[in-house]
Design a protein around this nucleic acid. Structure first.
Length: 609
DNA sequence: CTGCGTAGCTCG
DNA sequence: GTACGAGCTACGCAGG
């Protein structure tokens, strides 16, 4: 059958079901071997493209003639099609995302094999690998396999939407399918890297770690406390100078080595984490130096030369891949994980725009605390947000009462207009309350609070009691969430999105205490973290649609939980900054029903904190 | 040599 | 058992 005949058979179908086979995962350098399309009725069409990639655009009109494109992880296929010029995309339905929404938190998987078995009771042939080579014709078996990948999508979609409707999950499913197109943009656009600046930073850090390593080894050699760890056998490398071969050279990245060293200072030490290192640091210089060494060497390794391997040589950009739905509804990101780049601008500034463009970046201020305020309806939280007061300070005043009052200095900004002030004692109390404010979203207990505050468990218990006495509504809210989770076996984010997270270890009766406590903590945290994630995704959808509809010189390039980063032509930046702020706040209002959550937007030359 | 779990670190 | 959600690295062990 000719392409033309196949395309006219597909044209005008309400839904088109699509899948592609490629030679690999790199959408810039790998080749599309075939494109499979079905109208969801009886026939599947396999377009052989490997020797004829110039013909790929012939499909675009037909794809656009449908009301909706359907695929399993369709972002992958769309990214490849986009390298061939496919820009204007109709709404999409992704069977993988929708399955993830349905089974979120359970141990069920959402792969194509699994859902085909689940909904159609068909075992897709696994023996034919989806690894294909360029220049090699697809075998009839492989063509059949490809066709099968779209054959069952219609049935899967129909059954999924019925289940989504029944479970009140259609709104979040629609949101995720729209957000998919925003993540497609982010992945496709990528981000430029200033490799020279990056390398310079690594070089400096490398020198610093080497120096600290020498200091550590010198301590082992000179302090009798560490006699046991000294190298006994001398290396006999004739090509090295004596002083280089004779000293102890331990691997300070090894936790086993570190533990041995720590035990020379304090035999009761059990682990080598930051807490322990800090305690050792009070007894011996080795702890302090090791902490510095870790800080630097972590950055050399994780964010070192290997990081630059992520740069695509085709366009000198990184193109991180997003996993759109994690358990709370947050997204994650890898190769590289841009969400864990050190917050310091020394690092962030290494990410750059095209010439003539700037970053326009916006983040929500105290997004999760606002979600707590919304969920609990706490009057103090809401009033502080409404009037723009410093929330942590307001909380600290209430929790500490007289202790706060007596700590006021003359020019206290808090006493004047309830702003964050510089009184040393106020600062300390504020930090303590800030720990609780963030910690309560995680279901923090007195043990952990005591640890982070370096106080006794009794003091921490008393403080938490005081806190919840001051904020009874927050106490009630968190307790209601944990009760729901324990009673029902799942928890939901707030209206209107109402994403579900199931607890795989849940049992109605007879759960052991640790499991129950864990479910309680997750039940407190997921509505907060997840609602924030829903909001940011909604904002991304609004941005993406606005950019497309108005054809403005703006690109989505990154998102980090409560933050959206775009690049923009310089002369349009001011206008776009206002619009971006507005769209983010619109997404917040959609959930909260008020305008208390603000977005802060900045225009910068490089990516910034 | 490869795969996998753990510890420790980064971010929000 | 004692704070939520992620990903990346080196280490160290298991198995071919």
């Amino acid at each position: 059958m000719s392409w033309g005949a196949a395309l006219s058979a597909l044209r005008g179908s309400t839904y088109l079901f699509i899948d592609i086979e490629t030679t690999g995962l790199n959408f810039l350098s790998d080749t599309i071997l075939s494109i499979q399309v079905s109208d969801g009725k009886d026939d599947q069409y396999v377009f052989m493209t490997q020797d004829d990639v110039e013909s790929i655009p012939m499909l675009f009109d037909t794809l656009n003639s449908s009301k909706m494109l359907v695929g399993h992880n369709i972002k992958f296929d769309l990214k490849f099609l986009r390298t061939h010029g496919y820009h204007s995309i109709p709404p999409v339905y992704d069977t993988m995302l929708c399955e993830q929404i349905l089974v979120n938190g359970t141990n069920e998987r959402a792969g194509l094999h699994v859902v085909t078995k689940k909904y159609c009771d068909v075992e897709l042939d696994k023996s034919i690998r989806k690894q294909f080579c360029l220049g090699q014709d697809l075998t009839p078996k492989q063509i059949e396999y490809g066709a099968n990948d779209v054959k069952y999508l219609e049935s899967i979609m129909r059954q999924q939407t019925a289940a989504l409707r029944k479970e009140d999950l259609l709104p979040i499913a629609k949101l995720e399918c729209q957000a998919l197109l925003a993540f497609l943009e982010i992945e496709y656009n990528g981000l430029g890297v200033n490799t020279e600046r990056w390398m310079e930073m690594i070089e400096v850090l490398k020198l610093e770690t080497d120096q600290l390593e020498k200091e550590l080894n010198l301590i082992i050699d000179t302090d009798p406390l560490f006699e046991k760890l000294k190298s006994t056998s001398y290396q006999t490398d004739l090509f090295c100078a004596d002083e280089e071969v004779s000293g102890t050279r331990l691997n300070w990245n090894s936790s086993a080595v570190t533990l041995k060293a720590f035990r020379c200072v304090d035999p009761s030490v059990e682990s080598t984490g930051e807490q322990e290192a800090f305690k050792i640091g009070r007894l011996h210089a080795i702890g302090k130096i090791l902490r510095k060494h870790r800080e630097k060497s972590k950055k050399v390794t994780s964010f070192g030369v290997k990081f630059l391997d992520n740069i695509y040589k085709e366009d000198n950009h990184i193109h991180p891949r997003f996993t759109q739905i994690k358990r709370t509804g947050r997204v994650s990101c890898r190769e590289p994980n841009m969400q864990q780049i050190p917050a310091h601008n020394d690092w962030r500034n290494c990410f750059i725009t095209d010439p003539g463009h700037v970053f326009v970046s916006a983040d929500y201020s105290s997004q999760e605390l606002c979600v707590i305020a919304h969920g609990s309806k706490d009057p103090v939280f809401n009033e502080a947000l409404e009037k723009g007061h410093d929330l942590h300070s307001v909380c600290a005043e209430l929790v500490f009462g007289a202790k706060w009052k007596n700590a006021s200095l003359e020019d206290c900004a808090f006493n004047k207009n309830l702003e964050k002030c510089n009184c040393p004692e106020h600062k300390k109390l504020r930090t303590t309350v800030k720990t609780i404010n963030f910690g309560l979203a995680y279901g923090m207990g007195p043990g952990r609070l005591a640890e982070t505050m370096d106080s006794s468990v009794e003091q921490a218990t008393a403080l938490i009691e005081k806190y919840f006495k001051a904020f009874p509504k927050i106490k009630r809210f968190l307790e209601a969430m944990s009760k729901q989770g324990v009673d029902k076996g799942y928890i939901k984010t707030f209206s209107p999105w109402r994403r579900t997270r199931w607890f795989p270890d849940w049992k109605q009766y007879g759960m052991d205490v640790p499991t129950k406590r864990k479910i309680e903590r997750i039940s407190k945290n997921t509505p907060i973290q997840g609602t924030a994630a829903d909001m940011t995704k909604h904002a991304l959808v609004l941005c993406n649609e606005y950019i497309k509809e108005n054809n403005i010189p703006v690109k989505l390039v990154m998102t980090v939980h409560d933050q959206i980063d775009t690049t923009c032509a310089e002369d349009y930046a001011e206008e776009w900054a206002l619009k971006l702020t507005e769209l983010m706040e619109q997404a917040a209002t959609h959930i909260m029903g008020n305008t208390l959550l603000k977005a802060e937007t900045e225009i910068t030359k490089q990516w910034s904190k």
